[in-house]
Structures are given as structure tokens and as C-alpha cells.
């Protein structure tokens, strides 16, 4: 099959699967709602400044590890074998990553909405914060997709997912938190421009590495 049609086909398959198994996405939403509710019960309306930022990124981190983890873990060995006969490995990982990027952007919008409703919205510099959200969602989605592919090869993959992904996500989180901390202090996109560029470059790099490395991973 051609490259782009097979990417599109895989993407559509993931979407349809998500629509049919509503428990997965509703489970993640419930998870997010629970965290937000716990934060609200603890702090009430009084979350400001750095605490707001760190809580937001914690919600994002733990929601995304749950949302994206299943991308390869849910596939049975037989079904993966079938995909590999009809599509190139690059098409498979690209489709998974594009789907997860979409999912993560949706999740981060929802998390931002819920967190803002319960705890307020202290961000002054919305453009750079929202841009950081999108870039961060891309970074989370691509990294977690790749780690999910790696973890699916190991036994006890649920735990492996967290062990393998959290250390390599810390640098991304540090940059994201830096941008957010600037964004609650001053309304000046120029301050964050350098960090945003780093983040964008990092996204491209992770994407490229995943495309290069995945073909070595899938063969069993």
C-alpha cells in the first residue's frame, strides 16, 4: 500500500476504535476529573502562581501517560503482525503519533478548561502558554507513543511505561514549567521565544528519532 493512504487508514482505524470503545476515553476523562476535584478539595479557590502551574503539568503528565500508554499495549501480537503485512513501520508509528498528538491536544484543552474552572486562570501571557501547551502535547504524545512501543515488548509493560518515560520527560517538563512560570508573571512573548523554539526543535527531533528507530523495534 502507498505510504500516506496507509497512514490515513491506520489513523481512521484508531479513531473508529476509540469511538466504539468509549470506556477508554471516558476512563481518562474520569481520571482527569478526579485529580482536578482532589486539587479543588485541597486548595479550594486559593491556587495561584507556581502551584497552579505545577499542578496543571502534573495533571497533564499523568493523564497523558494513561491516555497514550494503551496505543501499543492494547494491540495483540497477532493484530500487530497483520498491520506489518499491510503497512510500512514508519506509517504505523506516524499514524499512532498523529492520533496521539490529536488526543493529547484535546486532553490538554480539557485539562486547562477543568483546571481553570475550579482553580482560576492566572496566566497573563496566554499566547505563549497555549503555544507551550500545544508543543508540550506534541512532545508528550510522540515520546509516550515511542515508549509505549518499547514497553509493549517487555513483560509487565504497564509499570515499564512509567519507569522508562518519566526520566526522559523531566527535561521537557522543566522547559514547559519555565515557560509557564514566565507566562504568569509578564505578558511578553519575546521572553519565552527561545524556550518555545527549543521545545519545537525537540518535538521535531523526537519525531525524527521515532521514525528512524521504530522499524528496528517492531520485528519479532
Amino acid at each position: 500500500m502507498q505510504f500516506w493512504p496507509s497512514v490515513w487508514g491506520m489513523l481512521k482505524k484508531d479513531l473508529i476504535l476509540e469511538m466504539r470503545q468509549k470506556y477508554a476515553i471516558s476512563g481518562i476523562l474520569l481520571y482527569m476529573l478526579c485529580i482536578v476535584f482532589i486539587i479543588f478539595m485541597t486548595f479550594g479557590q486559593g491556587v495561584r502562581g507556581p502551584v497552579w502551574v505545577v499542578l496543571f503539568w502534573l495533571i497533564m503528565l499523568f493523564t497523558s501517560v494513561n491516555a497514550v500508554a494503551k496505543s501499543f499495549l492494547q494491540e495483540s501480537t497477532g493484530r500487530l503482525l497483520y498491520y506489518y503485512t499491510i503497512a510500512s513501520p514508519q506509517a504505523i508509528i506516524l499514524a499512532k503519533m498523529l492520533y496521539n498528538i490529536g488526543l493529547m491536544i484535546l486532553m490538554s484543552a480539557l485539562a486547562l478548561l477543568m483546571h481553570s474552572i475550579t482553580s482560576g486562570y492566572p496566566i497573563v501571557d496566554s499566547p505563549s502558554f497555549l503555544l507551550a501547551n500545544v508543543l508540550g502535547a506534541i512532545a508528550f504524545a510522540t515520546t509516550f507513543s515511542m515508549i509505549s512501543a518499547i514497553a509493549s515488548k517487555a513483560s509487565n509493560s504497564g509499570t515499564m511505561m512509567a519507569i522508562l518515560s518519566f526520566p526522559i520527560l523531566i527535561p521537557i517538563l522543566i522547559i514547559l514549567i519555565r515557560i509557564s512560570l514566565n507566562a504568569i508573571q509578564q505578558n511578553n512573548l519575546a521572553v519565552n521565544l527561545q524556550d518555545l523554539m527549543y521545545l519545537a526543535a525537540l518535538d521535531v527531533m523526537i519525531l525524527a528519532m521515532a521514525l528512524i528507530l521504530f522499524p528496528y523495534l517492531w520485528r519479532d
Binding site: 518499547i150 515488548k153 523531566i170 527535561p171 527549543y198 527531533m205 523526537i206 528519532m209 528507530l213 523495534l217
Partner: peptide, 17 residues
């Protein structure tokens, strides 16, 4: 194979940190 893939993938992000 899996370990090699992880080590190459992680090295990039390690470099960032």
C-alpha cells in the same frame, strides 16, 4: 534490540537535560 532502541532514543533527551 529493544534496549538499543531505548538507549538511542533516551540519549537525545538526556542531552537536552
Amino acid at each position: 534490540r529493544v534496549a538499543a532502541v531505548y538507549s538511542i532514543f533516551a540519549f537525545i533527551l538526556l542531552n537536552v537535560s
